[in-house]
Nucleic acid binder design. Structure first.
Lengths: 208, 208
DNA sequence: GTCTATAGTTAGATAGAC
DNA sequence: GTCTATCTAACTATAGAC
């Protein structure tokens, strides 16, 4: 019960480690990250890192779980909401792109780490029912197609399109900038416009 | 001039190394790949690896260049062709998705390695004019908008949409399968359908 | 909680025999 | 060209003092 002997002014050591670890893992990935780098940037030594998190694996686990939760946050809420699909598109693109603009490293980090180690991901999330209710969303799309609200389309293809249009720009950022030569500021504006541009694009494609 | 003393039946050692290195780098990335793994799978020892390629960096360089060339192959040809944009969409989606179905590891590999080390990429490709002529394509789109062939849209947003819809499914593959539970065979069918589905989706979104 | 010092392992790379 | 043996450096992790 008697905790925090440190001044409250600066972050606790644990919080500082987590912040730095996030930064290092996000930019270098699990395989490229070094405990020494994390210790250095947190202004401590490696021993203390292990004192707090035992191993690189366990520290990574904490960071990955956090990133994953951020990457698939309110999706469930949006999907579960009682709204027509076109309204969900607006909400989804806006919220999702906003989130990634604030944490632009998360998409590549999560996608890449899952890609490199699918088993860990599979066993961890699927059994616990943490997967977003994609089939429920597909059912709603199918229903709206049937009712003539939107053009005939394979629901899964449409969902994949929605995800692709929102997420891919953040994954391809460096190549896009290299090819087009646009600055960070221009890219920010581009992403800002994209919040509504993606929604408009999708709605134009499926409107009857 | 007097080369290949080996039987022609089996691959040359160099070719075998390259094949194995491609596989290892593609699945584990630069940081996660081990020279020992490559040597083992190629049934040689590390010394011979260095005899052929001097260093891990140089071996990686060869693999990366090859992957990158495959990732941005005939884009230039398609863009340069004298066709209306809608026809280019058909050709692009079909050819591009076909290529990635044959080499599904390439998108994540290239995107991730560039993401982790943008400088190397920047300095290598941009000055040499190897970047696809994206601005030329944007100009064509702008012209077709002006002529009333397609709906008003920011050309760069449209190009980003096209790339996103083609590439992202290959980057998100493991998560998509985990969430939906679809099999490899079903996914293959999904991608096959996607060749035309993406083109149809885009054309529906921009048709006047 | 935090440190120094170091153990134990593995990585990339080279020397030198064949 | 191919191997064994080895070097050196870097990595994760732990022991033990304070």
């Amino acid at each position: 019960m008697a905790k925090e002997k440190k001044a409250v002014v600066d972050q606790s050591t644990e919080k500082r480690i987590l912040d730095v670890a996030k930064k290092v893992f996000f930019t270098k990935g699990y395989a490229g990250a070094r405990m020494q780098d994390i210790a250095d940037e947190a202004a401590i030594n490696k021993a203390l890192l292990h004192y707090y998190f035992r191993s690189k694996d366990q520290l990574f686990e904490v960071i990955f779980m956090g990133a994953f939760s951020t990457f698939f946050p309110r999706i469930r809420d949006i999907i579960d909401a009682d709204k027509p699909f076109t309204e969900k598109i607006d909400q989804f693109t806006d919220e999702y792109i906003s989130m990634m603009m604030q944490q632009p490293f998360i998409p590549m980090f999560v996608l890449n780490e899952v890609h490199k180690n699918p088993e860990r991901f599979f066993h961890k999330f699927i059994p616990e029912g943490k997967a977003p209710p994609i089939k429920k969303l597909a059912a709603q799309i199918a229903a709206e197609v049937k009712n003539g609200n939107i053009k005939p389309i394979d629901p899964m293809q449409l969902i994949m399109n929605l995800m692709s249009l929102c997420i891919f720009p953040f994954v391809s950022k460096p190549i896009f900038q290299a090819f087009t030569g646009i600055s960070d500021n221009q890219l920010k504006k581009f992403m800002e416009e994209r919040k509504t541009a993606v929604a408009a694009f999708i709605k134009a494609a499926i409107e009857v």
